[in-house]
Write a protein that binds this DNA or RNA. Sequence first.
RNA 1: GGUCGGUUAGCUCAGCGGUAGAGCGCUGCAUUCACAUUGCAGAUGUCGAGGGUUCAAAUCCCCCACCGACCACCA
Length: 739
Amino acid sequence: MEKAYNPQSVEAAMYKIWEAGGYFSPKMDGGKQSFSILLPPPNANADLHLGHAMYVVEDIMIRYHRMKGDPTLWLPGEDHAGFETQFVYEKYLTKEGKSRFDFEREALYKNIWDFVAANRGTMENQLRRLGFSLDWSRNIFTLDPKIIAIVYQTFKKLFDDGLVYRDARLVNYCTKDGTSFSDLEVKHVERTDPLYYMKYGPFILATTRPETKFGDTAVAVNPKDKRYKQWVGKEITVEGLLGPFKVVVVADSAIDPAFGTGVAKVTPFHDMTDFEIAKRHNLPAKQVIGFDGRLTKIAGPYAGMKVSVAREQIVKDMVARGLMDHIDNAYTHTVATCYKCGSVLEPLPLSQWYIRVKPLATQAVKAVKAKRITFVPKRFEKIANQWLTHFHDWNISRQIVWGIRIPAWKCEDCSTPEHEHWIVTQGEIPINCTKCGGTRLTQDIDTFDTWFSSAQWPYATLLSQSANPKSKILNSNQNENLKLKIENLRTKTTGTDFDTYYPTSVMETGYDILPWWVCRMIMLGLYVTGDVPFRTVYLHGLVRDAKGQKMSKSKGNAINPLKMADQYGADALRFSLVFGTAAGNDQSLSEDKIRGMRNFANKLWNIGRFIELNIAKQNLDSKESLPIHVKTLPNPQQKMLKSVFDLSINVTNKMEKYRYSDAAKKIYDFTWHVFADKYIEQSKKQLEADDTQTLAVLIDIYKTLLKLLHPFMPFVTEALYQKIPGWDRIPLIISSWPA
RNA sequence: GGUCGGUUAGCUCAGCGGUAGAGCGCUGCAUUCACAUUGCAGAUGUCGAGGGUUCAAAUCCCCCACCGACCACCA
């Protein structure tokens, strides 16, 4: 053995042994409860970052259960990451001097497909590099036809059950990225902007958006506001830049009398509140801002101007015309921006598909309250409940091509502007309209929000492994009032992953995607299968730099997990991520810490080397195991064996309670400061006298420690285990857990 | 405006009802002995402030302060 542990020389070889041996695939054992985790599918197109390295927690759970002999499945997947990936691709196009509008839909889709395909393998190999014992034989892509088929079925079922509807309302639209978003993708940022007090007929009113004035169709005051009582219901004439126009005054409780002058202009198509007011009072609406972010024809001479430019010009002109009363330049408010590109989002009127969340969320809340799902740490149960009770209806339409196209067709024959007739299928192209029999059907050009398919990941992936996924989905009529009974749902089909592994045991991911992903999986999982998608939710925190700052490429403080693995070994990186960190809490990671854990791996290595040297010294067969004669063992050795046993029990308890930091610390401390520093030192005398029993005990303890440590540091422990005398050719990865 | 975290050794953090812990750093000593990616010895904290519950509180409750995160249709 080399004097110092060199991870580079063993890690790749160990992974090859595991993968070639098929140890990542579950070993069935009828008597045992299965254990399963789905890897939160990383973006197929992107490199792994430290956030992904946190999935080491999953590998720890998986390796632990595998060693315990449970049928253990860790299922890998890759995410097409719809908008995220299209965004990256468009950036690439921009560099090439092109834009997405230079391509037909099919060509663009194919280009992105190839773009992603070119990068896919990278991510897989990075997961291997970190030692993740994923069952690659089951690896699945979110755009796999089998997944798409299930996503379609779910959509159809939701539609048939009245839980999906199409509605024209204001959406959060990014005019730069050219798509709408759900409420979750909206990032509210605080800003200081001018608040314009403009003259408005008999009133003065405050607005931040004078450029939308051309779309005003009313003026609103609070019904309790005495100052304006006499105006309610009356029509007023307002002087505008395009000449005088008339609007009505309405009373609506959405208006805060204390804000500005207590009078607000109502612009139904460009403000969420105004849209609601307009609905309540049956007001007309006019679109002043187009989907390109420029003013429409309605704006007369300002048409074609970008919003920001138009605002500046309009303010100038209003001031010149004496239409502006005064301007407050220090008004602080929050603005809705695009989480991705940072542009201000425009509320714009658009027809989209929505999921009626309430009935689904109600079931989810019930399941959580009934403890059918446990949260680690506990506090996230409350947060999940808050989300589930506050979700708005979910806009799942995206105006992009990279994703699963929505299987809905509009009948051009019987649709009217007021009432569109849509035909939803499970993917097959309809021939006739279900209502009028017409044949002029056009498919919706939008794709699903990535999260709509991600939300189905647990049952979609597991059903994909079975012969006939269709049979597993509830029929709509089986599902009245969403009162689901698990017993009725599962048609037992032996040998399918769904039957064996659903519900999965643990969902482990970052707490930052609790609402986006975890909550939605619970809702759709319950809806489609009648059972929760997982029994336990374990959430980890963000990894920050040594000073607690968020890591980012631009700041230059990002630690590259692969680089760290190359430099110090994947084991050292893995151990660093769990050592001294609590579930759900953000952590700081420094290279110093990783170095410290590398030193521990080296310590472990050198204990092995010490044993090897003593085997050689005593001229023993390094293949044969050394029996221990417990009864004749001196007291200190008996005691030591007992304390190792206690350690195993202790560590097992911690593992069962998801206390990985505690477990890691216990083994670390025992191995280094009890076993190496004290016990081995004390044994040296007997070893000098070639006492074989002493050596046998040493080896026995060492073996146990390697086992306990294996889930955390799989590479070095496996390499060492295979060097120990008496190695029975069963690799450590599938050897039995010591307690 | 709402919700949730955090505040413990120089730094980064565990612990969360029973005499203050780890990693890194620091100080001194050792060293051809498995390991300098080492060993031995050591220093360092009224566990953010105040109040309460308890035989006992860093740990539970209340209140305050300061950081941080997330949410939210104040035009």
